[in-house]
Design a protein around this nucleic acid. Sequence first.
DNA 1: CCACAGATTCTCT
DNA 2: GAGAATCTGTGGC
Length: 228
Amino acid sequence: MASRAPRSVLVSRRFYARPADALAVALLGRTLVRVLDDGTRLAGRIVETEAYLGTEDRAAHCFAGRRTPRKESMYARPGTAYVYFTYGMHHCFNVVCGRVGTPAAVLVRALEPVEGHEAMRRLRSARRAGSVPDTHLCSGPGRLCEAMGIDLKDDGVDLADPASRLFIVRGAGRLSADESVRNTARIGVAYAGDWADRALRWFIVGNPHVSRGGSREGSGGSGRRPLA
DNA sequence: CCACAGATTCTCT
DNA sequence: GAGAATCTGTGGC
């Protein structure tokens, strides 16, 4: 009966207690799970992440030690969710990491849907006319929050608590033998001076669910381009 | 497929 | 009052 148990094993709190760049890589291939109020289970494999290192990182919200009510979750213990609202209409989901009191986190930028596709499609199509294709369900930080029903109510949630309706499990494993990881500069942080060029964004090469954000390599897009 | 402009509201200065 | 760790539709090639 419990033979499939490993697929659902919750990621331990200690897993999150490492620097953001290390966690950004380690999260690739893990599965983010959401249990909706009606019991529907949604799950997506993490395929793209970005690291925000902390008070030294000019691109990070807590650069120079900024601490406001909004950013409070960033100072919580590792494994805490940091969710914020931006551009007047989108939410972004982050995983707090490092040590307590050090505001570091990993932004989850894209998921490969593995469970609850139709529920995700409904959530994504709620304020929209047409139907959303699978590759557009969770391919971007704002998109995945909408598809997973993540918003400000999830800010501060403990992802390492089995009782939470939002958590991360080991999943079927890490990466397939034919998958590889690549890193580039982060998306949307051009204002960050030297830090804008740091290669702190990681993604699974060629995966069609990776966001298209940077117009650089990694969109996976049509996937027709042979991998060099 | 690629580039660009508009949307829309919360937060901090 | 300015700016934002973004997304979508439209228009051009």
